[in-house]
């Protein structure tokens, strides 16, 4: 190789010393060992790089799949039915529902076999057991915004009386 820079001291005596003290060069076997070592290390480095690249690809793919799955499976904004706690049966403590008493109902006649019997004494004195707790199931207590805190507040449906 030509060196373009002019040697500042062409008669430099160091150059002779330098030339005479030429380093001992390795044998071909030593060179081969070094060359093999380089090839082995480069192959290992290339393999490690490939492995690393695949690991990164796998990681990115996994993250992408997780993101897609998250988007697909994430609960939508549509309202889900919330769990409704059913209140304890407010009528449980009543054996007979005091929906009406004898003073509330006036029986004028009892229709039987197409004959109207005149009722003298009230046929159902006292509390009229129109229904028992077993006959009524409470689905919700706030239907239509109307609440019935006590049985006495319950609406009374009475068939129209014939006068």
């Amino acid at each position: 190789m030509t060196r373009p820079d002019p040697d500042p001291t062409p008669d430099d005596p160091i150059r002779d010393v330098w030339a005479n003290a030429y380093p001992p060069m390795p044998s071909e076997a030593e060179w081969r060992a070094v060359g093999d070592g380089i090839a082995t290390r480069l192959t290992a480095a290339r393999r490690a790089r490939t492995t690393r690249r695949w690991a990164v690809v796998g990681l990115v793919s996994g993250l992408a799949a997780a993101v897609v799955a998250g988007v697909l499976l994430w609960p939508r904004s549509t309202p889900t039915p919330s769990v409704v706690e059913v209140a304890a049966d407010p009528l449980a403590e009543y054996d007979v529902l005091p929906i009406a008493t004898e003073s509330d109902v006036m029986v004028s006649a009892v229709r039987s076999n197409n004959i109207e019997l005149v009722a003298c004494d009230h046929p159902l004195p006292g509390v009229m057991p129109l229904a028992t707790p077993n006959d009524i199931s409470v689905a919700r207590t706030d239907a239509g915004g109307m609440s019935v805190p006590t049985p006495a507040d319950a609406p009374l449906f009475v068939e129209g009386l014939d006068k």
């Binding site: 330098w18 005479n20 030429y22 001992p24």
Partner: peptide
């Protein structure tokens, strides 16, 4: 010799 010179260098 060369080896000595090398060491000196």
């Amino acid at each position: 010799d060369r080896a000595d010179l090398r060491r000196v260098l």
